[in-house]
Design a binder for these strands. Structure first.
Length: 476
RNA sequence: GGCGGCAUAGCCAAGUGGUAAGGCAGAGGUCUGCAAAACCUUUAUCCCCCAGUUCGAAUCUGGGUGCCGCCUCCA
């Protein structure tokens, strides 16, 4: 089965044919590190992490590159406000990035290049563009001449005339064309700078991605991803710069852009100030839940945010996890059968789930639709568990399939198990005691005590459930 | 002004020509001391409105209405 994905460049779904068979190269525009990342950033990160995981699950040898913009106006400004060194500030938020990313089950990229570590490569590109007449230096500022690049506007679907007609930008008198953009910025007083052929300065924003993508993935790499607001000007400019110095080769083959998260139907953004930091949302909901919420909508559809949506996501995820837990509980009670297994409905259901899941994901990474395969399988497992005859083999197969498919989307469906080792042993002993006391209470029909124990334990995060076969407990 | 997107049940959300996935919530039932979990049944004669194309449209075309995004830093 081949993957079809929506290419922003052609505005249509295309079959994914990688540059090299069996391999996939992805470059994702990561965050500018001047703060903890917010839910909007999280959506982009989770979406491309999901794309990466799915490609890996399909057998591709994936190289995933995600940059950190660690020098730019906002970082400098923020550092000045806090009275610290911009590099120290950027470094701090890069470290913090990995904490939140890990909570959201976002795997580290194969390469996490930083802009400040690729100044030489950027200077090389700017120099080459200048040499080719696509860039010009004015008093230490180097601009890209958009008129000299015929394909300018092909990604965002607009012509230079359109853009100038609607330009709200304050025209920089130095530019030859108002749409020309900075490749290299002359250093201002107190700002960090590097030596260059044009004097002391720092790179423009767009050039870093060109330099790093070309360095680690080379021309014509497979997928370039990012948030939809990067289409213009950032990605448009990346294409211009990169292809401007590439002699006819394409920069990236497929462009993928995720839609935004909105708050009350309005875009969540740093400039509007209506953003939620992942760090804060994690205080109320687990990373797994946030991720489940984020992937519950197709990546190209807008996604509105409020706590209620996370509560819904949390309950849905619980359903999946309950199913895995119940299956494992049942498996623990029966001995593995030594009889040869036979085809039964559950085995068929597991196969069907895998197939439906793959069909959904092959179609432009439709994770929302893939969810239904997960839920369908969970129901099949649960129903199977109510039956008299249970094949351990079938149950194992179905449970493994459910967990495996969940894992492809980055969900850990294994029950929470934060306590380990020695402490777990102690907890078990305490629980044995507590449940023993409760059992006695129930025996004496002392429902008040029995219910009090159950309620209080639930508040602590330990769920107690009575079943016909006895009591069960688990951490939540 | 230019370019683009979206509108599906109480809520969330798939589906892009063949007669409405899935989740949450709700209702009834089974189980239970009660609960929880789970299971079974049930919940959109209809997909913003109006025309049109078609044997057939939520899905295509045209026209409305509403909402949103990009065109400036933003995932």
């Amino acid at each position: 089965m081949t993957i079809r994905l929506f290419n922003s460049l052609t505005r249509s779904k295309e079959e994914f044919v990688p540059r090299e068979p069996g391999k996939a190269s992805i470059y994702a525009c990561g965050p500018t590190t001047y703060n903890y990342f917010h839910l909007g950033n999280a959506r982009m990160l989770v979406v491309f992490d999901m794309v990466r995981r799915y490609l890996i699950s399909k057998g591709y040898d994936v190289t995933y590159v995600q940059n950190f913009t660690d020098v730019d106006d906002k970082i400098i400004k923020r550092a000045a406000e806090e009275g610290c060194d911009p590099f120290v500030l950027a470094r701090k938020y890069i470290d913090e990035y990995f904490k939140d990313a890990s909570a959201l089950q976002i795997l580290p990229a194969d390469v996490h290049p930083k802009a400040t570590e690729h100044i030489t490569e950027m200077i090389d590109i700017v120099a080459k563009l200048e040499e080719k007449g696509l860039a010009y230096n004015i008093d230490g500022d180097v601009y890209f001449a958009v008129e000299k690049f015929p394909g300018y506007g092909k990604l965002s679907g607009r012509s230079l005339e359109d853009m100038q007609a609607g330009a709200r930008v304050e025209v920089d008198e130095k530019k030859r064309n108002p749409m020309d953009f900075a490749l290299w910025k002359k250093a201002k007083k107190g700002e960090p700078f590097w030596e260059s052929p044009w004097g002391q300065g720092r790179p423009g924003w767009h050039i870093e991605c060109s330099a790093m993508a070309l360095k680690y993935l080379g021309p014509g790499f497979d997928i370039h991803g990012g948030g939809g607001d990067l289409i213009f000007p950032h990605h448009e400019n990346e294409i211009a710069q990169s292809e401007g110095c590439l002699d006819g080769e394409p920069f990236a083959r497929y462009w993928m852009h995720n839609a935004f998260i909105t708050i009350n139907q309005e875009k969540m953004s740093k400039s509007l100030g209506n953003f939620f930091l992942v760090r804060d949302v994690l205080k109320k909901f687990s990373g797994n839940v946030i991720r489940f919420y984020l992937l519950g909508t197709h990546y190209r559809s807008p996604l509105d945010f409020d706590d209620e949506k996370l509560v819904m996501a949390s309950k849905g995820l619980d359903r999946l996890k309950n199913s895995v837990r119940l299956a494992q509980e049942a498996l623990a009670k029966v001995l593995p059968d030594e009889e040869p297994f036979f085809e039964d409905d559950l085995i068929a259901a597991a196969r069907l789930a895998r197939k439906s899941f793959e069909e959904a994901m092959d179609d432009d990474f439709n994770s929302a639709q893939a969810y239904s395969a997960l839920f369908d399988l969970a129901r099949e497992i649960n129903t199977y568990l109510t039956k008299e005859i249970k094949q351990p083999f079938a149950l194992t197969e179905a449970c493994n399939t459910l967990q495996e498919l969940g894992q492809i989307l980055g969900f850990d469906l294994q029950a929470e198990d934060e306590i380990s080792g020695e402490e777990e042993g102690k907890l078990s002993q305490v629980m044995d005691l507590v449940l023993d006391i409760r059992k006695n209470a129930r025996k004496n029909k002392d429902w008040a005590t029995a219910d009090l124990i159950r309620d209080r334990m639930k508040e602590i995060g330990i769920v107690i459930e009575d079943t016909p076969d006895g009591v069960r407990w688990y951490l939540k």
